[in-house]
Structure formats: C-alpha cells, structure tokens
Simulated scan of single mutants.
Amino acid sequence: MRKDLFNFGPALGYFFRKPDPTRHTNFNLRTMHFINKLSMAMFLVGFIILLYRWFLR
C-alpha cells in the first residue's frame, strides 16, 4: 500500500494557511476560495454523518 494515499496535509493546509501578501487578490478569487472551503467542509460533515449512520446504528 502506498504511503502517500492518505496524506491529507495539503488539504488541511488549505484551510489553515495565511494569506500570501505577494499574491494579487480580488473579489472573484476570494469568493472562489470561500466556496471551495465551504464545499469541502460540507462534504466532511456529510461524510461524518454517513459514517455515523453506517457504524453506530
């Protein structure tokens, strides 16, 4: 089994990284990143609910 298969470091780093002051930002880019973070959080909540229903019921 490959070690890097379950490497979630880059995904978790996306949530907790600080803004890069050298990058240009605008409303569209900020909105895109917000929607990406929101969709990943909703997916994780849904996945946790599915795991709860499968294993604890």
Rank of each mutant, 00 (worst) to 15 (best):
F8T: 08
M42I: 07
F8H: 14
P19V: 13
P21F: 07
N28W: 04
L51M: 08
Y14A: 07
M42G: 08
Y52F: 09
F6M: 15
F47D: 05
V45A: 11
N7I: 00
F55P: 00
G9S: 04
R53V: 15
N28S: 11
P19H: 08
K3N: 04
L51W: 09
A11N: 09
L38I: 09
H24G: 14
R2H: 07
L56T: 06
F27I: 04
A11Y: 11
N28R: 02
L56H: 10
P10M: 12
F43K: 06
K37V: 00
K18T: 05
R2G: 05
L51C: 13
F16Q: 01
G9D: 01
G46F: 02
L38H: 07
R17E: 02
F34L: 12
H24E: 10
F55Q: 10
F43A: 04
N26Q: 07
R23Q: 08
F55A: 05
G46H: 00
N36A: 13
I48D: 07
K18H: 01
R57T: 13
W54I: 13
R57C: 05
R53T: 10
H24R: 13
L38C: 14
T22R: 09
R17P: 00
P19Q: 15
L12A: 01
P19K: 09
L44E: 04
R53P: 01
I49D: 06
G13C: 10
H24V: 03
R53I: 07
I35T: 15
G46K: 00
G46M: 00
L50Y: 14
L44R: 11
F8N: 08
G13K: 06
D4V: 09
L51A: 05
T22L: 12
F15G: 11
V45G: 10
Y52Q: 11
N28Q: 12
S39Y: 02
R23F: 08
D20E: 02
L29D: 08
R30M: 12
R30D: 05
A41E: 02
F27T: 15
T25P: 15
P19N: 07
A41R: 09
D4G: 06
F16W: 05
G46C: 01
K18R: 09
L50W: 07
G9F: 03
F34E: 10
T31Q: 12
L29C: 03
L29F: 15
H24S: 09
P10H: 03
P10C: 01
M1H: 04
